[in-house]
Amino acid sequence: MVKRKNPLKSLLFFLLILLIVFFCLFPFGQMLSLSLKYSWDWGNPSWIPTKINLDAYKELLNIGSSLKDVPESVLLLLEESPELTAVQKKAILATYQDTGDVFPFLKYFRNSLLLSFLASFISTCLAVLGAYAFSRLQFLGRSVVQRGVLFVYMFGGILLLIPLYRIFASLLLLSSPGGTLASLLIIYVVQTLPVSLYMLGNYFRTIPYSIEEAAMIEGLSRFGTIMKIIIPLSLSAIFTVFIYCFMIAWNEYMFASVFLKSYKALYTLPIGLKTLFMSKNAIWDRIMAASMLTAVPVMILFMSIQKNLTSGLASGGVKE
C-alpha cells in the first residue's frame, strides 16, 4: 500500500510494531523469568535471573526427590541410628519431602487432561453429525434449531451455574466423586457444543456438494458420505474444533470451583492453581512455574492449529 518510503515514518512504524510485540509478550516474559528466580532476586527488574533456579519445576514435576528440605539434624540423626530399618528411614524422610501436599501438579494435570479430552471428544463427535444436518439436509425446524444454537451464546455461565448445581445436586450426582466428574463432563460438553456446531457447520458449507452427489450416485448412503467423504475432507477443521473445545474446557474455572469444592483429589489445574495462590505455600517461583506448565500445552496446541483456528474464528464461531 505504501510505495514511497519516508524514513521517519518507517522508523515510527517499526517502533509501533515493537511496542505491540512487547505489550503482548511481557507478561509471559515476566512469568518465565520469575519462575526461574530465587526469592532474593524478585525485586531485580531485569528479566534475566542472577542465578537460575529450577527447584520449582523439579518440585512440580517430581523430578529428583532432593533432600534439601530435610533439616541437617534429622539427616545426622538418621545416619547415627543404626537401629532404624531402611523402611523406617524412608518414611521419616518422606514426611519432609512430600511435595504432593504442597501442590500435586501432576495429579491436577491428569484430571484436567482427562476432563478436557473427553468433553471435547464427545462434543466434536456430536457436532460433526449435527453440523452436517445443518449444512446439508432440509428438515422441518432446521432454521429454528440453528437460531436456537446461536441464541445460546448470550447465556453467560453465571446464569446456568445455580440451576445446574441444584439439578445435579438433586439427582444426587454430586455426592460421589464419579458422579461429580460426570456432571462436570456433561457441563463441558454443553458449554462447547454450540460453538462446535457453528464452526463445523460453516466449514461443511465450503465443501462442494457435487463431490457428495457423485458419491451418492455411485450408491453411497447419506451416512456413508459423512463417514467416507465429509469427515476425511474436513479432518483439519474437525481437529481445530476439537482443540478449541479442549482449550475452553482446560481453562474453565467457575463450574469446576463449585462442583469440585469438596473433592480435592479431583481438582483441575485452574482451581488447583487458585487454591495454591491463596494458600500459605504460595511462593512466586512455584506459582509462575505452575502457570508456565499450565500454559505451555495449550500454546503448543494452538500453534499446531493456528492457521485453521484463525480462519475458523474469523468465520464467526467463537465462545468466551
Binding site: F28, M31, L34, Y253, L273, S291, A295
Partner: peptide, 9 residues
Amino acid sequence: APVISVVFA
C-alpha cells in the same frame, strides 16, 4: 493463553 496462568503474571 489460559486465564489462570496469565492472571498471576
